[in-house]
Amino acid sequence: MPSIKLPATIENLDRMLEFVVNGVNHFEIATENSLKKLRLVCEEMLTNIIDYSYPKQTGEVKIIYKVVTEEKKVIIKIIDHGVPFNPVEYKKPNLSASIEERDIGGLGIHIAKRIVDQMKYQRNEEQNVLTIVKFIN
């Protein structure tokens, strides 16, 4: 399965996203809209790791993807060894608040959870292992 391991920094975000999106696009089964959604999910989850996973020093993030062509779906694993964080259980932000009351945070995970078809979190050997399934037809 294709994989990439990079320092979890904002400078590497585009490279990480290109790795997944271009890799999946190569199979020529994903619609343009589903590729954009895939990119969005990856951006949200990776940005979260970049921003919060390593508060002391920069750590690494590993991304693995698998395209199941017959089912037209992509399975993505995102692994970091930063602070434990389970996005699956993350509380939904208040989406009906006004401009003044709106909080800046929490939107990304909410977006990702709404777009994916499955999201699973495991804490394994001091690593956060996030598995995402997204249909691409």
Partner: peptide, 8 residues
Amino acid sequence: YISSAGLR
């Protein structure tokens, strides 16, 4: 394309 960073 817009992500949560753009919404913020």
